[in-house]
Design a protein around this nucleic acid. Structure first.
Lengths: 168, 168
DNA sequence: GTGAATGTTCATTTTGAATTGAACTGGCAA
DNA sequence: TTGCCAGTTCAATTCAAAATGAACATTCAC
């Protein structure tokens, strides 16, 4: 059930807002993040004024829970800036729209952890292969493990290149 | 319900097979592909003999439907080679384990389509913005659209760099 | 302090993607 | 021709991730 303002109405999204949201919902889905994160970022991206959590809840018709969790994710990625206004309790958010920190945040939060868990798993495979004694079989498995290690190495090396290229 | 051999048994996976599968299930999940695709590739990757669809069904305990669909995906990515043996109807598969074509296949099948649909959406946003008349508002939206176009451009440009770096 | 406003957490529900499995297709063999 | 084998398709089911919303903090205002 969509959340409504106290008067029971809800400001409809403009076409521009809807199109921006559509772009980022798709974008974050590709990156493996939930759609609500894309909705929030997409709306902030075309907002001239910063928005509060309650603004997001009302305009997007999502739950407070989703908005809170989505904002947490965006903060961890460095994709939103938090604006503390003196004398006002509510915190406001705006989109951080510079590519470099976005790419950096994504690599740090999403890519590196996966790479690392992959490396752990390859090491475990390596050990299982070391227990193999038949030399013919062993040669084949060694080649496979070596290949995986090579892929991992390239994965690690490509990240700084990506950052350099996409940053600024 | 897992598929069984006619005698009701099923060859258990070796530790090496299980570890390889675990690596690739994770790997393909990150890329947004279903886990069964990772299971199939993971098993093929450490198989010294090519395997048939029925072999995969039996060893992995997945349905014929999953195996068929998974193999189709892997073929489209160029991640498996099909071996036609003369006089034998069954077709056999082996893992294509060279990084370059894998990266190329992934970019062609998964990345480019998303990039293109993104570009279409940005164009639609552009048009909506063009209908905006208030000059102050217009300036802000123009800057946002320009930024998106810049991101798309970089996305397109980074692909060949990735390919060059990961290929060979 | 107390109450109201803001935001978080998490058990439950919902939703959509993955998987199943039965029906089907196409081709080969006898 | 008939029957069988290998593989595909797709409607129905299952399952995991996302979203909800009510209960729970926290903090500010008075």
């Amino acid at each position: 059930m969509p959340e409504l303002k106290e008067d029971g109405t809800r400001d409809a999204l403009t076409e521009i807002e809807r199109r921006s949201i559509a772009i980022f919902v798709d974008g974050v889905r590709v990156l493996g993040l939930p759609g609500s994160v894309g909705e929030i970022y997409g709306l902030l991206f075309v907002s001239r004024e910063p928005l509060s959590l309650d603004d997001l809840v009302q305009r997007l018709g999502i739950s407070k829970g989703s908005a809170s969790q989505g904002l947490r994710t965006l903060k961890s990625l460095g994709a939103v800036r938090e604006l503390e206004v003196v004398g006002v309790r509510r915190t406001y958010f705006e989109a951080a729209a510079e590519l470099k920190p976005l790419v950096g945040g994504f690599i740090r939060e999403q890519v590196r952890p996966h790479l690392e868990s992959g490396e752990t798993k390859v090491m475990a495979l390596q050990e299982a292969v070391n227990r193999e004694t038949d030399p013919a079989v062993r040669g084949f498995f060694d080649e496979r493990v070596e290949r995986l290690e090579n892929w991992m190495r390239r994965g690690r090396m490509v990240l700084p290149i990506l950052q350099k290229f996409l940053g600024q």
